[in-house]
């Protein structure tokens, strides 16, 4: 069965995209703090928070921001367990595994904390050095904690944004970030037609799986996948022409007219002021400590 594993993997990848979309729509409809906000203000503040996280140097500040993301998730009625799992399961856990060698003085030289192995002598090849005592260094440990905390805090806010905002609203809100209308429209249309393609792939793969009693050779299977990519592209071009004609018949003549109407309220202004003040204080506190 391992020879047809590629069929299952593709079907799984398609299902995961659909599941994420459904999951986000479900939480975006709930009545919570983040769902109340004007999407433009929300995007601006989340972008501000992501940039702020990238400027911070202290684990404590990063943990404070991570804590803020958890608090906001609770206030926005996002189930905490699924939120934390979704945040940690991929990027931060992967980053924590990747960063493990950087704990050692082979990668990050510095003050040794725990000596793991003692060799008879040190070894050097060009830029690479294996010291006589391989140890976890204070600098390596500190750097790795900062790195994983930063990744976790960033991913946490990125996930929170997608879980509490309808995807079509995110694209509409991008106009507030001065993204040209043609890009926003392309993003919106891409998002819509992506699901048409996913359905198409799912149908092709399910049909193939249901007809499979014996796998082809690897070369044969690769040829089949390539032919499916070709079919998708041909359908893409046909669909692009059909959509263009459908747009023309609805009065499209190259100018994009948007019907989004945004309205900021007191809660948006309070939110904006709070987040900017919080960020400024955090940054000032850190920089004060470093200078």
């Amino acid at each position: 069965m391992s020879r047809t594993k590629f069929l299952d993997k593709t079907l799984l990848a398609v299902a995961q995209v659909a599941e994420r979309s459904f999951f986000s729509e479900e939480h975006a409809r709930m009545k919570g703090l983040l769902q109340l906000l004007d999407v433009r203000i929300k995007l601006l503040t989340f972008l501000f928070l992501l940039v702020l996280i990238s400027f911070l140097h202290e684990p404590r500040s990063l943990w404070m921001l991570y804590g803020l993301s958890l608090m906001l998730a609770m206030l926005s009625r996002v189930p905490l367990l699924s939120f934390v799992t979704r945040v940690w399961l991929f990027v931060p856990l992967f980053s924590a595994a990747v960063v493990l060698p950087a704990l050692l003085n082979i990668i990050t030289p510095g003050e040794p904390l725990w000596v793991l192995v003692s060799l008879q002598r040190s070894y050097s090849w060009g830029p690479y050095t294996i010291p006589q005592e391989i140890a976890v260094t204070r600098q390596g440990l500190w750097g790795s904690i900062v790195f994983v905390s930063r990744v976790a805090a960033s991913v946490s806010f990125a996930v929170l944004l997608t879980m509490t905002t309808r995807w079509s609203d995110i694209f509409a809100g991008l106009r507030a970030l001065m993204v040209p209308r043609i890009f926003v429209m392309t993003l919106n249309m891409t998002n819509r037609y992506l699901f048409v393609f996913l359905r198409l792939i799912q149908d092709m793969y399910r049909a193939r799986k249901s007809r499979t009693i014996h796998a082809l050779s690897s070369a044969g299977e690769r040829g089949w996948v390539a032919s499916r990519i070709g079919v998708i592209f041909r359908k893409s071009i046909e669909m692009s022409n059909d959509i263009y004609l459908a747009m023309l018949s609805r009065g499209y003549h190259g100018e994009i007219i948007s019907f989004e109407r945004f309205r900021t309220r007191l809660v948006d202004h309070l939110w904006l002021a709070t987040i900017i003040a919080f960020g400024a204080v955090l940054l000032a506190f850190e920089r004060g400590r470093f200078n």
């Binding site: 690897s218 390539a226 692009s240």
Partner: peptide, 28 residues
Amino acid sequence: KAKQAPFLAIGAAFSFVIMMFNIPIIGG
């Protein structure tokens, strides 16, 4: 010209889905 919007959007969706096509390599 005017045709660019659907053409680009469909191109982008195609670009997105290409990454989903897993192909068999050596050893399963």
